[in-house]
Simulated assay, not measured.
Amino acid sequence: MITWMQRHKRWLVITIWISTIAFVGAGFVGWGSYEYGKQGGVVAVVGDREISNDEYQEEYSRLYEQYANAFGSAFNKDMAEKLNLKNIAYTQVLQKNLILSYGESLGIDVTNKDIAKELVKYNAFLKDGKFDKDTYVQVLSQNRTTPVKFEDSLKRNILLQKIQTLFEVDANQVEVQNLNKLLFVQDDISIKILNSNDIVINPSENELKKYW
């Protein structure tokens, strides 16, 4: 278990914090319409954050693509239904917004400069090696989205990355062991099985007289 935790300590710490944030934030979640396929609908509210149906659909599409890449041609809509992919996407988008709400409460923000740095990383938006606004708008239009929606999505991802860096802890052996004890609390018991050959009694006469 220690070896596994050391190997996955980065994600373990993040998972623990996600669980903590989710537990604390659960009291601030107001459930919404939970409607699939309705444009512009709000599926949930986390703190002051409204989770739009577009955001949910984006999460579902991302998950669907991941599963399709993993399973290949064997993956289809029927398999997605059997795997309950819609609820998985809904849970994940909810957890992400709990983290985003937590980050915002800490005063972490994403600036226009942060977004601009990300935009120039997309080759599809470049023309002659430079970011071109007309190309940017055209590519987004071809993908049935707008700059506002795309940049909102980009902003969420950047904010998640910033919050994630808070949880990147380089834990040493002692810290991992203490975390292991915290997560898997149990009594330390040493057991040894004895048989008749292990029990040897050679009492002296004085010991017998004292006993009796």
Rank of each mutant, 00 (worst) to 15 (best):
G30D: 14
Y211G: 02
I18Y: 11
Y90D: 00
S19Y: 14
I88F: 02
N206G: 10
K127R: 09
V13M: 13
K38P: 07
D48A: 09
F71H: 14
V45G: 04
S73K: 15
A22H: 04
V45Y: 03
E151W: 06
M1S: 11
T146M: 02
V46R: 05
G103N: 14
F131P: 04
Q164K: 07
E50K: 02
G25I: 00
V139Y: 12
S52M: 05
K121E: 06
A22Q: 06
A124H: 05
T145S: 10
K82Y: 07
G129W: 06
W212P: 05
Q57R: 05
D54W: 04
S101K: 14
L159S: 03
N178R: 14
S141A: 13
V43G: 04
F150R: 11
I163N: 02
W31Q: 14
Q66F: 00
K82E: 01
L160Y: 01
E58K: 09
W212Q: 15
Q138F: 05
D134K: 14
I115Q: 02
E81R: 15
L179I: 15
D114R: 06
Y67M: 11
K127L: 11
D109K: 08
W11L: 10
K117N: 12
T165G: 02
R62V: 09
A171T: 11
N123P: 05
N180P: 08
D54M: 05
F131Q: 01
L194D: 02
K77H: 05
K155A: 15
Q173I: 11
L140R: 00
